[in-house]
Design a binder for these strands. Sequence first.
DNA 1: CCAACATAGGTGATGCGTCAACTATTCCGG
DNA 2: CCGGAATAGTTGACGCATCACCTATGTTGG
Lengths: 153, 153
Amino acid sequence: MTETRWLDERESAAWRGYLAMYTQLAARLHREMQADSGLSLTDFEVLVRLTDQDEPRLRVGELAQALQWEKSRLSHHLARMQRRGLVVRQECPEDARGAFIALTGKGRTAIEQAAPAHVETVRDLVFDQLTEDQVDALAAIADCVLDRLNETE
Amino acid sequence: MTETRWLDERESAAWRGYLAMYTQLAARLHREMQADSGLSLTDFEVLVRLTDQDEPRLRVGELAQALQWEKSRLSHHLARMQRRGLVVRQECPEDARGAFIALTGKGRTAIEQAAPAHVETVRDLVFDQLTEDQVDALAAIADCVLDRLNETE
DNA sequence: CCAACATAGGTGATGCGTCAACTATTCCGG
DNA sequence: CCGGAATAGTTGACGCATCACCTATGTTGG
């Protein structure tokens, strides 16, 4: 057991800032989306994936992979979204174990209405506050950290 | 309703990177802490606040404020932590409505054991991957965004 | 062809976060 | 000193995330 390399003043300031930023930013984005379209951020994510496709219909597994979600989490979430009429499950002829998930009209309307407001909020809270250099720095930082995350599983 | 100012390529890359980073980083930090000390990140936060004090005993309200948590969330969480023997509730003589929260020996041991490993993980995943300039940039970015968050409530 | 295994996906239990409502106490104006 | 408002904290219901397990179907080697 070697000595713990504690964070120095600078690192610790950056870390506290990062934690505070992401906590508050996530909470705010969630609140705003909930307020003006009744969707949660996770509903939104799911709907985005379904909309991104040419076919508005995806296998559950593909959706899980695209979202990087556990299949069980997705399954539960889809059940709730289906209950609210945002998506429907459809049988899959080629593989009877599988299922397709399709957007409903209501789901499509919901995301088309939510997206502009969401982007506007992100722009207002984040990108309008940052210089171009900072935007690039943020992307670079994310890349470094993500590389390390993948490197170590 | 004016035109939506969508994100350009650069912004959108930064945003995707940020989202991926924080999602994966949070998940990883959580998993590691859970694995090597049985604490969740939120348990850890609570214990840190209790340890930071001179007196290892805080009013629930003070704790809520320090953590920036809703009192109800904190109340639920403390109930679970108490059940696991990490903290105890104590009566408050000066104000019979109130309660003190104190660290137990088990709670103290838990955080003392968890902290070094946690810092080591943060260092490995984040600070060892970044240059000094990037660390400062991250802090600056967080400040800008946090300022805007506070400005707009 | 069939037994063993893999794969797609769902289920139930439990912990967590939020909201609204509630209880018990304290404070404060008259 | 008393009645109403404010405050401290808890509770219950519900949506969400995770874990372990389950079912049904498909695949494959013998």
